[in-house]
């Protein structure tokens, strides 16, 4: 069913584009549909579409349906309860806390990560000496490789490493702080204090992604013609002005993409939070929606309710992406005009 519609569409396009090339042919010629074309359409359009329906759209609809049931997850009985689950979520203090924490992550993590990685990208591309050609800091190749390291390490490993760094009794952080004389940090529980748990967790996420987005921005900055930087410098622009007036407009498209990715990651954040504070942190200060979905579904046996949370998270994600895209489109129009 699915492949036939794109097929006719593609045929029509193919026939249309054929005409000017042949020139001498007067009447529209119906091209024979060869095996090559059909197999190409099936493989490159039909198959991905079928997979998309099966693995993305179908589970989505299924989850939406489950969210209207009181399914425990362990039986084949799915009593229909309408919108009860959503009503329960609206008054579920723990879920609302998780929602708030996820929103905080969404607001803070992408901005901090992208700002820092942009600064690093500037330093390694044109932040070097202002005499001679436009270039990055000396040995910037080394910094580029080193800052990419965290991205190569799996998230769960990062979580475990950092939970050891934050260990109150013998972690690196408290060890360093106490050795420079800050004795109030002896046995300070970074992940166990409700004021510091969330910032400490954010640092871990930011740390692990800076390198990747730096590389992305480096590539984007390299895509800007070098003459622009040289011209700006001849006009007397320093590194900061070059960054703001040349680099930023040039990498806006990458920023948008990066912002969407980073935002979706911040809304997820499951692996990091689960590794750093599996029970949701002191006073639930690091509990995120995905963790709440997990416990509700698997340890409390309420899949219907968990699916409702999933639907809320999906809507939140769509909303976020829409906002980012329209804001960046507006910004582009203003800058580009």
């Amino acid at each position: 069913m699915a492949p036939t519609d794109p097929l006719t569409a593609a045929r029509a396009v193919g026939a249309g584009s054929e005409q000017p090339a042949t020139g001498t042919v007067r009447r529209p010629r119906r091209r024979r549909v060869g095996f090559d074309r059909v197999s190409m359409i099936v493989v490159f359009l039909g198959l991905p579409f079928a997979l998309y329906v099966l693995l993305v759209l179908y589970p989505f609809t299924q989850a939406v349906y489950y969210s209207t049931t009181g399914w425990t997850g362990f039986s084949d009985v799915q009593p229909f309860v309408g919108l009860d689950n959503y009503a329960r979520l609206a008054s579920d203090a723990r879920f609302l806390t998780a929602l708030g924490n996820s929103a905080t992550l969404l607001l803070v993590v992408p901005v901090v990560t992208l700002t820092l990685s942009f600064v690093l990208a500037v330093l390694v591309t044109f932040g070097g000496s202002t005499t001679g050609g436009v270039r990055g800091l000396s040995s910037s190749g080394f910094y580029r490789v080193v800052s990419f390291f965290p991205y190569v390490v799996p998230a769960i490993v990062i979580g475990i490493i950092w939970s050891q760094i934050y260990n109150p009794a013998n972690g690196l952080l408290n060890g360093a702080l106490t050795s420079v004389g800050l004795s109030r940090f002896a046995d300070f529980a970074w992940l166990g204090d409700s004021d510091t748990a969330m910032p400490a967790s954010m640092v871990v996420i930011v740390w692990s992604f800076i390198g990747f987005y730096m590389v992305l921005f480096v590539a984007a900055i390299k895509g800007i013609p070098a003459e622009l930087f040289e011209a700006a410098r001849l006009d007397g622009a320093g590194r900061f002005r070059s960054a703001v007036h040349v680099a930023i407009p040039g990498v806006l498209g990458s920023v948008r993409t990066a912002y969407v990715y980073m935002g979706i990651l911040a809304l997820d954040a499951f692996v990091y939070m689960q590794a750093l504070n599996p029970s949701g942190g002191p006073n639930s200060s690091t509990l995120v929606i995905t963790q709440q979905i997990y416990t509700t579904a698997f340890s409390q046996g309420q899949f219907g309710l968990a699916c409702a949370m999933g639907v809320v998270l999906a809507l939140l994600t769509f909303g976020f992406v829409t906002v980012v895209l329209s804001v960046s489109r507006l910004a582009e129009r203003r800058l580009g005009a």
Partner: peptide
Amino acid sequence: PGGAGTQFTA
């Protein structure tokens, strides 16, 4: 002190 931030086997 510090238990709230310490992994339980530690």
